[in-house]
Design a protein around this nucleic acid. Structure first.
Lengths: 246, 246
DNA sequence: CGGCTTCTTGATCTCGATCAATCAGCGTGG
DNA sequence: CCACGCTGATTGATCGAGATCAAGAAGCCG
């Protein structure tokens, strides 16, 4: 193994510490003191970056760890008898694998949508450490609770909203998540395909396309390929909340 | 306050101990030793039974406790601008309120569907106790994880299944939950109205009715009012899994 | 440049929503 | 105890949003 590789890996490992991670204020160690953060840091396993289409987790594999997204993005796909269903997207600072704790296997395959790096957090170590660090424990409860709440939002979306409300909602959700991470909430690039979006929202690809067209006509959201520009955030939010017309 | 009331309350409080509760093997203290169970017992607050239509939790109220259902059943209703959406049903041994930990208010109103008793578990006490009892902590993680997983199942249902698959899925889910609790998985009484079911599954009441009629014709499920008889479980499960024809 | 996949646009068809009417329970009060 | 009224459930008729089928257009990479 050439020196340069070793050197760059060392650099990566070094920078991959929570203390220096720009996401630490959004991620699990959010509420920890510096000294506690070092303890947390010590249980984290660094991972080589995933390439697009690589699987981080295989459906049915035994649960061992949760993963924090460091950069890039992922999708969770649940396969039931050949029928594939996109169940979730994960952006930086979000935790992957919390839905596997219960029955000890991962319920879906998680693919990288682009080049993606994650921090692996072995769950037994995390649990043990959460015994000593109440702030960590609470943060873990909160992360799971937040995911529950988001899922309920999604349930509401799917069971009672029309196609354009779903799309609007999808964009406002992404927009908010980018905003929290310090990126522009108005202009971003989708890492998932139209197919993924449609599958996730319970819509046909063609419908996704058509609705994007309509949004563009109405001057609400402009899309060019995977580039998204939100032109009228207020209108978009009105749409998302079921305000049939905007 | 007359003696009889005091006496009966005392009796209720006495019997309402995890150690003697028939649900303890399904509920939070599931993995606890007897001595630990007493500690757990000590933080639980007993509650007077709820009558049908009573609200256990009001949407937006500050989060303080989770509740374990002891008998009866509940529904969670999320109200967004006058639009009501049934987000969940809770049966005995299930935990209510886990989705409120994150942002410190309850996201929906929880109504009793019939006479219902619950155990109130103040969350700060629970968290503190979970520091000492690793089994309790793990059980709490597992409960949340299970709910996450169930929600994902539901998402899949709503985003990609047809009306009769949803109904079939709803029945198999209920059936399994009754089975785990030692009741007949083939014959039970619905505590929720057709309206609630339709709202929950994203279907119109009329559609629910029609599908029940179809199930009955085909000899899969017989319903008489709120009484349900599953006649052909295999066919029902095939239907639920998207086997279009049964 | 060809051979992919992904995306868009158009035409048709279907499932389930909606509207409307009747029916069955069921608690209330005369 | 029964008639009344109310809510919940069933059944029928119609309509529309979105799926599906079909065909191009536009990226994208070897």
């Amino acid at each position: 193994m050439p020196d340069t590789v070793l050197a760059s890996r060392h650099a990566r490992l070094h920078e991959a510490r929570c203390r220096t991670c720009s996401l630490s204020s959004l991620c699990l160690p959010l509420a920890l003191e510096l000294s506690d953060m070092d303890q947390f840091d010590a249980i984290i396993r660094r991972r080589a970056p995933l390439k697009k289409h690589d699987a981080l987790i295989h459906q049915g594999a035994p649960f061992t760890s949760v993963f924090a997204v460091r950069s890039g993005s992922l999708k969770q796909v649940i396969n039931e008898k050949g029928d594939e269903q996109v169940a979730n997207f994960y952006l930086p600072s979000e935790l992957v694998g919390l839905d596997a704790i219960d029955d000890t296997t991962y319920p879906g395959t998680v693919y990288a949508l682009e080049t993606t790096t994650v921090c692996e957090i072995p769950f037994d170590r995390l649990d043990a450490l959460s015994e000593k660090l109440p702030e960590l424990r609470v943060q873990l409860y909160r992360s799971m609770s937040k995911e529950l709440r988001d899922d309920r939002r999604m349930l509401r979306l799917l069971s009672s909203k029309a196609a354009d409300e779903r799309m609007a909602s999808f964009f406002t959700s992404l927009s908010n998540r980018f905003r929290r991470r310090g990126y522009s909430p108005y202009s971003f690039r989708l890492s998932m395909s139209r197919g993924d979006i449609g599958n996730y929202l319970g819509l046909a690809v063609e419908t996704v396309s058509r609705i994007l067209g309509r949004f563009q006509q109405r001057g609400v959201v402009a899309t060019a390929g995977r580039e998204v520009n939100i032109l009228d955030m207020a209108a978009l939010e009105r749409l998302a909340e079921g305000g049939g017309d905007a």
